[in-house]
Nucleic acid binder design. Sequence first.
DNA 1: CGGCATCCGGGAAGATACTG
DNA 2: CAGTATCTTCCCGGATGCCG
Lengths: 233, 233
Amino acid sequence: MKLEKITKEMRAAPKAPVLRSYDDACGAAHALDLIGERWALLVMRELMFGPKRFSDLRADLPGISANVLTQRLERLEEIGAARKRKLPPPAASHVYELTQWGYEIEPVLGLLGRWAARSPLHDPTLPLSAASLMLSFKTMFDAGRVKGFKARVGFRISEETFLVHIAGGKCDAARGAVDDADVVFAGAATTIAAAVYGGVPLKALEAQGALKIEGDRALAERFTGLFPLPPKI
Amino acid sequence: MKLEKITKEMRAAPKAPVLRSYDDACGAAHALDLIGERWALLVMRELMFGPKRFSDLRADLPGISANVLTQRLERLEEIGAARKRKLPPPAASHVYELTQWGYEIEPVLGLLGRWAARSPLHDPTLPLSAASLMLSFKTMFDAGRVKGFKARVGFRISEETFLVHIAGGKCDAARGAVDDADVVFAGAATTIAAAVYGGVPLKALEAQGALKIEGDRALAERFTGLFPLPPKI
DNA sequence: CGGCATCCGGGAAGATACTG
DNA sequence: CAGTATCTTCCCGGATGCCG
């Protein structure tokens, strides 16, 4: 057993994952060399609102397998888009976080999302992570629908809280306490998406116990109308 | 041999390409379901300046194999991002072209390119297609370097010609005749990239016969300075 | 328990040869 | 020229197990 293991290690290449490349000077091609593998961009999406642990990533990316997640994180670290950080004691664990450059992939996620939302094949009723929902708010926000409007809208999505800040025709979202929010949505990300993008009335969702609104209900109603989907092709 | 083959075919599903999906309502995830497979985005890149034939695509995407190109074109057609068009007689051939929606992927190529150009791993001396070069001009153009400047710059790259139009702080590129251009660069795309992005003097490239400048030489020199690369991380 | 390494089956990608 | 057919290689995904 031990012998066989050593033999295989010695026979194997020292550390050559080969890494199929497009061998193309085009920047977009290089981007695909860096983050074009399956799951890579979605891992970055999940890290877009701050550090996460390995298991958080697994939970938020249903379908990814542990070994693939390991490979993607190693690759993101290798190219300088993410780093692994050791948490201070007593939390004997690490988190993964994007680098400054890694965070700059966000506009790509927005553009891709807006483009694909026009596809007839897009199914908005599929599962959705909290990070995806928050990103969609930043992406789909229609400034034309709110003139000089300010609001702090909180979200409580399974242990995590986010704060969406609408002011000056901008819509920003971040992890954060919801204590001083004007209104708080509590429920699954998919449920909140059903209200905002699926047009499902808040009352219906509340009635079935899937959603809870705390605070300014009228503001909640108004909020759901600020994110129009682009027209289908 | 024959028996085994028939058995396998009979056992196989009738016609289910399965199509691995992320099963995620997030728009970016759906985009990856649509065009996230290897080569798909680069095929779109090559079609960004107009229709091309199958063999043109193969030639401009060194490394892609015929069967993969077939699959990608079929998929792009299936999702509504491209279509196959029969050329009028006597040209008994077809071309592939993007749909309106397909063309709208262009900003994604630009953002990805700008992002990846900051990677230390990016090697600008690799081969480059004509379409990539033209896209890079639209992407990397720095309006701040030209105030009220107008120019028509032509490119002759192995049988194909492009016209880059600089006016009103904008830089546009398209396929087109170079007859009324102020200056024309004739050479390989990689050579022209060496001049614009690699800082190689035009004279050096001309001396070794890799490049030919026709028309306003001073304008050619100025043109090469309009496309600064973003800072490395 | 979290973070991997390992083995395996299936399927996509790559290379080559062949055909209408 | 425009693909198809076939074979090989490698990646992805799932299961298991090691180890701190």
